[in-house]
Design a protein around this nucleic acid. Structure first.
Lengths: 163, 163
DNA sequence: TCGGTGACCTGATTC
DNA sequence: AGAATCAGGTCACCG
């Protein structure tokens, strides 16, 4: 397994997703802190918590993401005033465990191109030619077609599949 | 420790303060734990957090202390259930750094005798005849007159200068 | 009572 | 040089 492109052609389901952003997970993201920090520029662009009518959405929201196997993951997403950072909290640790996420792995967030605007989450082993590729924790599902490097054409967040 | 009296006579500003208590700081007090443990008997006597109307002041309070140079230091003061201890947390590390506090140094807490009841904080190098005396981090201010050994006549805590 | 979660904090680093 | 970011921490609450 040396490339993340599937030589047989792009995965059709993946093709329907725009990449929003991806992040190399840190030790803290997969450790005992039970939270995943979303870099601010991505958070504010794709998962806005504030708007002009409600500038302080302090309690956060629940977001649903679909993984490569079709399983729905519901994460609590909120803003921490103290560190001025956006985080996924409740539900995140379960995802880390089931996917066996480790430091250096890549997690990517996507939104389906169709009218549903469903959010998707994918992950793959940390890069390195000998090991790059999707993580197959339980189910063997082919994923990560060419869309992994697609530049998102979407602007101005909003949730199609949240809550 | 016997050399902390200023032989030239009591400092007038210091005279206006009652000594509440003093503590020799530990490694933990000046290390990476970012907290200063206040011995329970002193904490409960001088900085009470609980009262009959509000038995659980879990969030703690902010206390202002004036140092020998007139600078105001605001510390968060709270009770940690896990260790059953009273601690200064937020703001403490900055004090440690600015004063160059080291293990064995003495930190003392005072309350002004006037109607304002302002809290004061002072510190001095660890004892040892060759080095006892006030710490002069930046400004050279004479401090620590005879009141250092004055027994506080105040009882029953309460904050004159907090928050 | 203890693990999961929420909120808060800080320093190194970056910008 | 001051402000912002965020990785890596803390403790409190709750079931």
């Amino acid at each position: 397994m040396e490339a993340i492109r599937d030589p047989s052609g792009p995965d059709r389901a993946a093709m329907a997703c725009h990449l929003l952003f991806q992040k190399e997970v840190t030790q803290s993201d997969v450790g005992k802190l039970n939270r995943f920090v979303i870099p601010k520029q991505h958070a504010e662009k794709h998962f806005p918590l504030r708007n002009r009518t409600s500038p302080t959405t302090s309690k956060g929201v629940l977001l649903n993401f679909i993984d490569s196997g079709g399983k729905v993951w519901r994460f609590r997403y909120s803003y921490w005033n103290s560190s001025r950072s956006y985080v996924l909290t409740r539900g995140w640790t379960r995802f880390v465990k089931e996917k066996s996420l480790r430091t250096g792995d890549i997690v990517s967030f996507h939104r389906s191109a169709g009218p549903e605007k469903q959010l998707h989450i994918k992950c793959m082993r940390r890069s390195g030619l000998s090991q790059a590729g999707p993580i197959h924790p339980v189910q063997m599902v082919r994923l990560f077609g060419v869309d992994i490097f697609e530049v998102s054409a979407e602007d101005g967040g909003g949730y199609g599949g949240g809550g």
